[in-house]
Computed example of a mutant assay.
Amino acid sequence: MPQSLSKNYIHLTFSTKYRKDSIRKEDLPEMFSYISGILKNVDCPSIIVGGITNHIHVLCVLNKNIALTKMVEEIKKSSSKWIKGKGIYYQWFAWQEGYGAFSVSQSKVDVVTRYIGGQEEHHKKISFEDELKIFLKEYGVEYNEQYL
């Protein structure tokens, strides 16, 4: 085959430092839009970006020419710099180290899209930490409890 073809859907999630509610609710839509722009710039089109005041979820298509870690680094670095420019409230803003990234089947894209779109309602019932543990168990990812 004379060309390289791929389509890998990635569900990415990461939190604010110490999982603090560091992002003001009114700034979330702009944050989601900014992250979508970052993804567009690295040629990893977003399907949806959502979350709440202490963590973000992204569903995107991972470009075959960029490593997942590089994509995440670019999202965190650029969005952190951007939000710090929004005023003194964000002067100490930081993302927590690490992230969770999970492959998504084409047949589950709509399910994950709805899930990410409903984060505010979803997190009235379950914490981010418990949610992450469910993902890790579902995907068979081994982890050290102390780092969650």
Rank of each mutant, 00 (worst) to 15 (best):
E142V: 08
G85L: 01
S127A: 09
K76D: 15
I56K: 03
L59C: 15
H11K: 01
C44L: 01
Q119H: 02
F128H: 10
K137Q: 11
A94R: 01
S107Q: 04
I35N: 05
A101N: 10
Y139R: 14
I88Q: 12
Y143K: 11
Y147E: 03
K70P: 11
F135L: 10
I35R: 02
M31E: 01
Y99P: 00
Q96Y: 13
V141F: 15
K125T: 01
K84V: 02
E120R: 04
K77N: 10
C44P: 09
L62D: 08
L68N: 14
K86Q: 08
V111E: 10
L5H: 13
K7P: 14
Y34H: 04
S33E: 04
A101R: 07
S105N: 15
F93W: 04
Y147T: 03
N8K: 08
I23N: 00
E30C: 12
I66K: 14
K70H: 04
I134Q: 14
K125G: 05
K64N: 03
F14A: 08
R114M: 13
F93L: 04
F32I: 05
G87T: 04
I83A: 00
I48C: 06
S127T: 15
G87S: 07
I52Y: 03
H122A: 09
K125D: 01
K76V: 01
S15F: 06
I48R: 03
L5W: 03
Q146Y: 12
I75Y: 13
K25W: 12
W82I: 11
K86E: 05
Y147M: 11
S6R: 12
S15K: 02
D110T: 13
L39W: 01
G100N: 04
F102K: 00
K84M: 01
N65L: 03
K40W: 05
I66E: 13
V58P: 05
N8V: 09
S46F: 10
R24D: 00
L68M: 15
S22W: 00
G140R: 00
K137S: 13
R114A: 10
I56N: 02
I38P: 07
F135I: 07
R19L: 05
I56R: 02
A67N: 11
G140V: 02
Y143F: 12
I75F: 12
I116M: 11
L59K: 12
S103Y: 06
